[in-house]
Design a protein around this nucleic acid. Structure first.
Length: 626
RNA sequence: GCCGGAGUGUUGGAAUCGGUAGACAAGAUCGCCUCAAAAGCGAUUGCCCUAACGGGCGUGUGGGUUCGAGUCCCACCUCCGGCACCA
C-alpha cells in the first residue's frame, strides 16, 4: 500500500452543511439516533477566525471556539502539511528536523498517528505575536493539528484545552490560566465555565460574555471575525475503478476541463476485459474511450477516466424510480412531483450518515436546480437491526455464518421469515438461535395439522363458544393490525399463536364449520404477510374464495372484539389481594361494592379504617386503609 | 471526552395512556402415547418461607412523587452504539 497525492473530483457538500444540519429539524419521522449521528458528522462549531502575524514576516489564520481564552495562548501549532511551514523554516537550523518530522507524518496513516498516544511535534524556530497583547510565542508543527479542519493552524491554550496541555507539559511550555477553575479542581486543563482571569479587558466576564467581547475586539481591530466551522469535508467522488458512472469531463489541451454537453450524456462505460485496479482507472487503458474531441474547439482531447463513487448513484435512484423508462432525461420533474418524497424508507443503521446524508445533499442540489420537488427525500425512515451470532456480526471470515439456504432446506422459508419477525424488535440487533426457528416451525406445523385435520362438525345453534372464538380472532386481528402499522412485528406474532391455540381448543367441543372457517380464514389472512407459502397452500386446500394474495386486509369487528367479562384486580394499599370476574361495563360504584365484598380483601381491611377508594373499572379497585 | 440508546425470569422478549409484571416463545422437569425412541399431546416452571392454606420479596442501585411506578423526577452504576487529537 502506498499513499499518493492525486488530483481528484469532489462535490462541494460543505456548501450545504448548514442546510443539511438545519433541515434535520424537518425529519419528524426519522429515528433520533440517526439524526444525532448526522448532526455529529456535520459537526458545526461556532467561534472566531483571526490572523496571527509571524515575527519577522508571514502570517497565518487560526480558528478557535474559545476566543475568550486568547490571552492564554502560549504557543501556536501548524499542521505538518501547512503551506506556510516551508517558508518559515527555509534556511534555518531547524529546517532539517522539521522536514524529517513532516516526512514521518506524511507516511503515517491517521490511525497510526492516533495510536502513538503521545503528542509529538517540533519547534520551527519562529515566533508568533498574540494580537491582543503583543506576546511573543513559539510556533511548532505537530500532527495533532489536522490540515483538513479549520485553517490547519491553532492558537494553543494549554490551560483550557487538554490536548494543548499535554503538548505543553511534554515540551516544557508555559501555561497561563485564563478561566478560574473551581476551588476543588484537581484536573489539568479546565474547559468549564468560570470567571475570566489574566485577560485584561476580559477579566471577570463569564465564558460566554468573554467570548462575545473577544470576537467584538477582533472585529473592531480588523484582526478577525466571528466564524462557523464544520467537520463535514467535501465529498471525494473519484474512484480508480471500473464499476461506477464515468465522470463526464473532457480535458482539452487548449480549452482546459470541459463538461460533456447535455446531449451527449450519459457517458457510458466502455466494454473492458480487465477490471482489476492498477493504481489508476481501468478506463485509462481503453484508448477508444479516452480519445475524444473537445466539445468546445473540436480539437483532440481526453476523457476523464475516474469513475464516480457508487454513493452518487444511490443518492438519486429514488428519483429515477419515479420515471424509470425515461430515455430523454434522468426523470421528469412532474412525475417526481407526484411520487416524492419517499413515504417510508427502510435500511440498515450502517447508512445513518454516508448514504442518507449524500442522498439528502443531492436532493437539495436538484431541488435548487428546480428538478426535485422536495428538499428532503425520505419522509419516514426505519432502521432495522442486524442478526448476530455468538455476540458478533455474522461474517464469512469469522466463520459465524448461518446460511439462509440451509434454513430454507431444514425449516422452510416460512418458518425463517416468521422467526425473523418474532425474535425481537426490528430496530434492535437480535441474536440468532437455532431453537428459536424450531419454535416457529413447530407453530406452522400445528397450524397445518389444524387445517388438515378431519373435523366432525356439529350443526348445533351458535352459542357463547362461537362468540368466544370469534372474540379471540377479532382481538388478535386488532392487535396484529395495530402492531404492523407501528412496525412492531415481533408483537404481531403472538396473537396468531393465541388464535391457533383457541382454534385447536374449539375443535374439541362440538365445532360449527361456519365459526371454524371464519376464524381460520382470519388466521390465514394475518399469517399471509409473514409466512405466505403455507398460508396460501392452506387457503387453497380449504377452498376459501379467491386467491389469498388478492384479499384485502380484514377489518376487525369492534362488537366481536369486545370482551364481556374481564378480570378485575382488588388492591388493598396498592397490593393485589384478589381477582374477580366482572362485566366489562361495570360501574365504579358496583366495582367498589364488589371489591369491598371480596373475602380475600376483607382479611386486609377488617380492623382498619377505609380512607379512600380508587376505582378504575373494569380493571382495578384500590382500597386504601389506614 | 462528547452524543445517543438500553438494563425485566435460565434465555429471546412482552407489558401501547402511571393501574393484574413476566404475554408469546426457547430451555428444563414430570406425565401420557410407544416394545423403544423421535414426533406429538398434557402439566409445572421469577426468588424465598410454608406440609398445606397462604404470605413476603421482586423490573441495574439509592432516593423522591403518587392511592398505585418497569413506566414519571433526581443522583449513581453497568453495558451497547456513534463520533473522536475537529482546536
Amino acid at each position: 500500500m502506498v499513499r499518493r497525492n492525486l488530483s481528484q473530483w469532489f462535490f462541494r457538500i460543505t456548501d450545504y452543511a448548514e442546510r443539511l444540519l438545519a433541515d434535520i429539524e424537518m425529519l419528524e419521522h426519522w429515528p433520533e439516533r440517526v439524526k444525532t449521528m448526522q448532526r455529529n458528522w456535520i459537526g458545526r462549531s461556532e467561534g472566531a477566525q483571526f490572523t496571527i502575524q509571524v515575527e519577522g514576516g508571514g502570517r497565518f489564520e487560526v480558528f478557535t471556539t474559545r476566543p475568550d481564552t486568547i490571552f492564554g495562548m502560549t504557543f501556536c501549532v501548524l499542521a505538518p502539511e501547512h503551506p506556510l511551514v516551508d517558508e518559515l523554516v527555509a534556511g534555518r537550523p531547524e529546517e532539517a528536523e522539521v522536514r524529517a518530522y513532516q516526512e514521518k507524518a506524511s507516511h503515517a496513516s491517521e490511525l497510526e498517528r492516533l495510536a502513538e498516544g503521545e503528542k509529538t511535534g517540533v519547534f520551527t524556530g519562529r515566533y508568533a505575536i498574540n494580537p491582543v497583547n503583543g506576546k511573543r510565542v513559539p510556533i511548532y508543527i505537530a500532527d495533532y493539528v489536522l490540515m483538513g479542519y479549520g485553517t490547519g493552524a491553532i492558537m494553543a491554550v494549554p490551560a483550557e484545552d487538554q490536548r494543548d496541555w499535554d503538548f505543553a507539559t511534554r515540551y516544557g511550555l508555559e501555561i497561563i490560566r485564563t478561566v478560574q477553575p473551581p476551588d476543588d479542581w484537581d484536573g489539568e486543563a479546565y474547559s468549564g465555565d468560570g470567571p475570566t482571569i489574566n485577560s485584561d479587558f476580559l477579566n471577570g466576564l463569564s465564558r460566554e460574555e468573554a467570548k462575545e467581547k473577544a470576537i467584538q475586539w477582533l472585529e473592531e481591530n480588523g484582526v478577525g471575525k466571528r466564524s462557523v466551522n464544520y467537520r463535514l469535508r467535501d465529498w471525494l467522488i473519484s474512484r480508480q475503478r471500473y464499476w461506477g458512472a464515468p465522470i463526464p469531463i473532457i480535458d482539452c489541451p487548449s480549452c482546459g476541463l470541459v463538461p460533456v454537453p447535455y446531449e451527449q450524456l450519459p457517458v457510458l462505460l466502455p466494454e473492458v476485459t480487465d477490471w482489476l485496479p492498477k493504481g489508476k482507472s481501468p478506463l485509462a487503458a481503453v484508448d477508444t474511450f479516452v480519445e475524444t474531441t473537445c466539445p468546445e474547439c473540436g480539437g483532440p482531447a481526453k476523457r476523464e477516466t475516474d469513475t464516480m463513487d457508487t454513493f452518487v448513484d444511490s443518492s438519486w435512484y429514488f428519483l429515477r424510480f419515479c420515471d424509470p423508462r425515461n430515455d430523454d432525461a434522468p426523470f421528469d420533474p412532474e412525475k417526481a412531483r407526484y411520487w416524492m418524497p419517499v413515504d417510508q424508507y427502510i435500511g440498515g443503521i450502517e447508512h445513518a450518515v454516508l448514504h442518507l446524508l449524500y442522498a439528502r445533499f443531492i436532493t437539495k442540489v436538484l431541488y435548487d436546480m428546480g428538478l426535485a420537488p422536495v428538499e428532503e427525500p425520505f419522509a419516514r425512515l426505519f432502521t432495522q437491526g442486524m442478526i448476530t451470532l455468538g455476540g458478533a456480526k455474522m461474517s464469512k471470515s469469522k466463520g459465524n455464518v448461518v446460511d439462509p439456504v440451509d434454513m430454507y432446506e431444514s425449516h422452510g422459508a416460512d418458518a425463517l421469515r416468521l422467526y425473523h419477525l418474532f425474535m425481537g424488535p426490528p430496530t434492535e440487533d437480535a441474536v440468532w438461535t437455532n431453537s428459536g426457528i424450531d419454535g416457529t416451525r413447530r407453530f406452522l406445523e400445528r397450524v397445518w395439522r389444524l387445517a388438515a385435520r378431519d373435523i366432525e362438525y356439529s350443526d348445533r345453534p351458535e352459542d357463547e363458544r362461537d362468540r368466544e372464538l370469534l372474540g379471540v380472532a377479532h382481538r388478535s386481528l386488532r392487535k396484529v393490525t395495530e402492531d404492523i402499522e407501528r412496525f412492531q412485528f415481533n408483537t404481531a406474532v403472538p396473537p396468531l399463536m393465541v388464535l391457533a391455540n383457541a382454534l385447536s381448543d374449539y375443535t374439541n367441543g362440538e365445532p360449527r364449520k361456519e365459526t371454524f372457517d371464519a376464524a381460520l380464514r382470519l388466521l390465514l389472512l394475518m399469517l399471509a404477510p409473514m409466512s405466505p407459502h403455507i398460508a396460501h397452500e392452506i387457503w387453497e386446500r380449504r377452498g376459501f374464495e379467491g386467491m389469498l394474495a388478492e384479499q384485502p386486509w380484514p377489518d376487525w369487528d369492534p362488537d366481536l372484539a369486545r370482551e364481556e367479562t374481564v378480570t378485575m384486580v382488588v388492591q388493598v394499599n396498592g397490593k393485589v389481594r384478589d381477582r374477580i370476574d366482572v362485566p366489562a361495563d361495570i360501574t365504579p360504584e358496583e366495582a367498589e361494592r364488589l371489591a369491598l365484598a371480596s373475602e380475600k380483601a376483607r382479611a386486609f381491611i377488617d380492623g382498619h379504617e377505609v380512607r379512600k377508594m380508587v376505582a378504575r373499572p373494569p380493571r382495578l379497585v384500590n382500597i386504601v386503609v389506614g
